[in-house]
Design a protein around this nucleic acid. Structure first.
Lengths: 215, 215
DNA sequence: AATTAAATTTAGACAAAACTAAAAATATTT
DNA sequence: AAATATTTTTAGTTTTGTCTAAATTTAATT
């Protein structure tokens, strides 16, 4: 597996979670910031290697073999993210780019030792589940903050948007994984919500509320 | 800098330590397990980028810019080796290959944070010096065990040959960095030496004695 | 000094992964 | 259903890093 092939597998994996019945060529191209024609070429190669099923004009999906591979890449990515945050004191908006590189280091022993060193974390710093050695991951039935009724106490468990800008905003507001959140008031006119987060009252926009996972 | 370019710089750096007045094309090819013609191509490119000085048939050497780059790569390699041994419990014969991959991850912040996390080590698990952020490294005036006179107590501080086979041999004999060594007897006929290592008496071949650095 | 040997470079080719531009297939509108 | 728009694929190039085989330069030997 080359780095490029791994990047394709990872993107197809992520897109499959949203559209399970075949991933569009254009969607892949968008994610990888490449051209559709390049994607077509690569899909043929990946189909040849039997990690992807691909039929002209029908989009692509992972074979079982491809799924196993993709989960390994996701596992590596997320474990390195935990390492960077927990051990090297990176903030959660800084880790993605570096993990994009680290995820391609392929030693099984390395990744399993790292997993043990980090004490087998179940989730990465954005609340996304980390596949274990067998590819299994914990699923927690999270909801968007925007779907929670008034006065219900909940806990921040992840983010939907994990862009640096959003994460930096959350940092600034001192909102973090584990923060206790209660919605005090929803204003239907402008969709702002008044909330109490870790004992502090503040106002959030709908954009924030639809990108924060709580439980 | 691509991974391939970095590998060339690193190899030229290592070979320069032995032959400071220009590194042979063939020597580079040997180290990288590639062909001389490929090396010629790459040397032209590196000269273009002003990290190497290169004149046809005259061999290559690093420019100042190239030296700075090369030391960064060596720094990354050796810091990752320390990480693998100290934090992930790898043995010293297992780390080289993995560090060969990790050394190409380029974030400055990553490597400086790793350095701090490891408490700014001066030497890697084979006793080789680790350049600091400025490229400076500690030099210790080590000698080969074979050059030490009889009955002189010395301490193992590094290995010349760092092949897995040699390191595994040392492991088996319980010889490690810091081991206390005293030569009891040298047999000039077959060049075997009788030594006391950490209170235990054993016999070493000349091949071992000429590949162990002591102080 | 001439010859042979070794090292190095040139020339031309190839595979991987990307690209552009044009063609073909599928979707969407009218 | 025809026309238009969008998506996807094909065909042909480009770049990077490698290769082989032949040519050239330097080094070693007789």
């Amino acid at each position: 597996m080359t780095i490029s092939e791994e990047n394709y597998l990872k993107v197809i994996y992520h897109l499959s979670l949203v559209s399970p019945k075949g991933v569009n060529t254009n969607a892949i191209a968008g994610m990888l910031e490449t051209k559709a024609s390049s994607v077509t070429d690569m899909l043929k190669k990946l189909a040849e290697k039997e990690v992807v099923t691909y039929k002209k004009y029908q989009g692509a999906s992972l074979t079982n073999k491809g799924l196993i591979q993709a989960k390994k890449i996701v596992r590596r990515h997320r474990l390195w993210e935990v390492f960077l945050v927990e051990k090297l004191q990176f903030s959660w908006d800084e880790v993605h780019e570096i993990a994009e590189e680290l995820e391609h280091i392929k030693s099984e022993k390395l990744i399993n030792s790292l997993d043990a060193f980090l004490e087998f974390p179940d989730f990465d710093p954005h609340g996304d589940p980390i596949p274990n050695e067998k590819g299994e991951m914990k699923k927690l039935d999270k909801q968007l903050l925007s779907e929670i009724p008034l006065e219900t106490l909940c806990k921040c468990v992840g983010v939907k948007d994990s862009s640096a800008e959003f994460l930096q905003y959350l940092d600034k507001q001192k909102i973090t994984l584990g923060s206790q959140i209660k919605i005090l008031e929803k204003e239907s006119f402008d969709e702002l919500i008044r909330v109490e987060i870790d004992k502090k009252v503040m106002v959030l926009s709908n954009k924030i509320a639809t990108n924060l996972y709580v439980q």
